[in-house]
Simulated scan of single mutants.
Amino acid sequence: MNLLIPLLALSSSVITPDMVTQLSELEKNDPHQALKVYKKSREDYLRSFSLEAVQYHRVALKAANDLTDWPTFLSILETLKQPELTPYTSKKTLHIINDIGVAYRLNNQFDDAIAHFKCAIDKTSNAHQTAALKANIAIVYRIQGQPSVGFRLLDSIEFKVLNTPIRAGINVVKGNLSLHLGETTAAIQSYQEAIKLFKEENKIRDSIRVEFNIMTAALLEKNLSLYQTYRTNAETKIKDFNIDNSDFLTFLDMVSHAISMRDTVELETSKTALLLNELAKNDDANESVRLLLKSLKLDNVISAEQQRKPIEPLLEAKLGAHWCEEMR
Rank of each mutant, 00 (worst) to 15 (best):
A217Q: 04
K318F: 04
T236R: 10
H322D: 13
E211T: 07
L275E: 02
H257A: 14
L275S: 05
K237P: 06
L276Q: 02
K297Y: 06
I214A: 00
Q306I: 06
T236F: 05
D244V: 11
S260L: 06
E235M: 08
L224K: 08
E268R: 12
L319T: 05
M261Y: 04
E268K: 14
D240R: 13
N245C: 14
N233E: 15
Q307D: 15
R231I: 04
K281W: 01
N242D: 15
D244A: 15
L249F: 13
L319N: 03
K237W: 09
L224F: 03
Q306N: 07
V265N: 09
S246H: 10
L292S: 07
L220Q: 08
L315Y: 05
I204E: 12
E287V: 08
E287L: 11
A304W: 01
Y230D: 09
Q307T: 14
K271S: 10
S303K: 11
N277Y: 02
A273V: 05
V210Y: 00
K237R: 14
E278I: 09
E266N: 09
K281L: 14
A285L: 11
F241C: 10
L296I: 10
T232N: 11
L319K: 08
H322N: 13
P310V: 10
L314S: 08
G320C: 11
R231K: 15
R231L: 07
L319D: 03
